[in-house]
Design a protein around this nucleic acid. Sequence first.
DNA 1: CACAGGTTCTACATGGTGTAGAACCATGTC
DNA 2: GACATGGTTCTACACCATGTAGAACCTGTG
Lengths: 125, 125
Amino acid sequence: MATLGELERTVMNLLWECGAAMTANSLRDQLAAQGQDGASGKELAVTTVLTVLSRLEKKNLVERERENRPHRYRALTTRADHTAELMHEVLGSVQDREAVLTRFIGSVSETEAETLRKLLGGTSA
Amino acid sequence: MATLGELERTVMNLLWECGAAMTANSLRDQLAAQGQDGASGKELAVTTVLTVLSRLEKKNLVERERENRPHRYRALTTRADHTAELMHEVLGSVQDREAVLTRFIGSVSETEAETLRKLLGGTSA
DNA sequence: CACAGGTTCTACATGGTGTAGAACCATGTC
DNA sequence: GACATGGTTCTACACCATGTAGAACCTGTG
């Protein structure tokens, strides 16, 4: 349901990595530090960051504390949760899940296969 | 890489379900039959279908036989392959794959878990 | 050659995203 | 209380993907 644009994704990554809540300004700084300042190369305007944050809020990906003035924004899910959810969304979009899973497993790395085995092992019933 | 629009997806589904190659006209008919004719409710123009097919071709999702005149279009992958690939794409977009897989497995149905166990079964070591 | 069916070109509306100025609001200061 | 200041919301625009289709073009047939 939530398709993210490049900048939106970058911001989410910052929020996910930092863990805690951040202000628009600190995010803008982080973006600048990462050299992730848009296509132009110059620092992004704070309003840009705020717009993105609002949109992410609308998408239920971030939440903000409105109490004190510099609002603080925080991710509502973990990246892992979000990503896993996306995967489910993709998987759920078709009928023949079995077939999809077969192909999926077919091209999974051995490390990942091992992880999956471990995870599935105990969970029987 | 390939984000599909509503109509593009519908067309792909038709091609996937039919298995064989189809002409733009037959596709248009199928769409009409499904009542999938856009938002309007009236039959789609053939040119619309053709445009969509061209775009899908550009995205390497369909291929066409140009030899005979009513060109025939055919899906280049199976839906299962395509979907599995999308899942990999999503999974590959992050570092902590383990965590993602953990969440993913956590919310998989028992039937699917069983399928996965079977698929992963022999490959230990 | 004219016609008919089929394909490509061109075009426009819509919606999401990047980007940011303008306007607005809350606070502390003189 | 008017003002400056930092912060937030509104409004706006460019760009791109997608849905949609008319206009123009091509090709074999009578």
